[in-house]
Design a protein around this nucleic acid. Structure first.
Lengths: 137, 137
DNA sequence: TTGTTAATCTATAAAATCTATAGGATAAAA
DNA sequence: TTTTATCCTATAGATTTTATAGATTAACAA
């Protein structure tokens, strides 16, 4: 299941991408429009900021804004920050590889084999999807 | 992340599929070979039995055995029983559809749009993979 | 300078889910 | 009728997710 964190994060990014202006948008405004707890959203946007495509400004008139064009913001990056590794098991993870402690041999592991396919499949979707693809009606 | 339940369930099914004989295999044997808590595995196999491709026999010489050929056991069925719906949000689920309570319009929802792609992609993998595909070395 | 606004940061509470175990019931075989 | 192994239900323990609280920092405006 998709976490609420990811769901909210995607909605917030979409909300920002739909703005005509590039002026900062307050968290309160996003939270209100997208039915999200403001405090929860604060944490989410904060973690998204580390990606480099999201900027923020403090004080009056402050808020969040996109630094890059939505078409330059890939879902691989967004999903990794929000949802964590794209792979469902760490032994097939590109960015967070870890050996399974209970599995003596990856080559012959059925779970490994299946999850490799799933990872490749998901990766292709995320690599070929940017924030701009989520906007269209 | 893949749950341990699913991981264990897949390993157990694979273990059964690799048997030469069609005689029942005791849970204890599977648990030992695959490093799984026996009691936990009991529950898992029990839930897998509902799919119809897994049979069991009680008493001495009892255990679990595959009713169908591994090539006739699709991952869609296995994953749905073990891991739950394949869709990451219920609003794109084929078998467990539910409207999101916080989302006024699916058509314009960015999460819906993205998760639809992910579901299709995963579904294709699971539909084209059977238990027999997980066996090969 | 001072007050107001809004993001930043850390900690933690509350809720939900996952993982594992316990123990008796049932069925089959010897 | 004893032994063996699955069946079934309940629940304990651990982990993760979701949400909130409150003090801090930065920017702006009067």
């Amino acid at each position: 299941m998709l976490s609420k964190k990811t769901k909210y994060g995607l909605k917030a990014l979409t909300y920002l991408a739909r703005q005509k202006t590039k002026e900062p948008i307050a968290i309160a405004e996003i939270a209100k429009h997208e039915n999200i707890s403001q405090k929860f959203l604060e944490n989410i946007l904060l973690s998204l900021r580390s990606t480099g495509f999201l900027g923020s400004k403090k004080g009056k008139g402050g808020g969040y804004y996109l630094i890059k064009d939505p078409s330059e913001i890939p879902m691989t990056t967004v999903m990794r920050v929000l949802e964590g590794p794209i792979a469902m098991v760490s032994c097939v993870s590109l960015n967070f590889y870890e050996k399974c402690d209970d599995c003596p041999d990856e080559q012959s592991c059925s779970v490994h084999r299946l999850m490799l396919k799933v990872r490749d499949s998901n990766l292709e979707v995320y690599r070929n999807t940017s924030l701009s693809d989520l906007l269209a009606r």
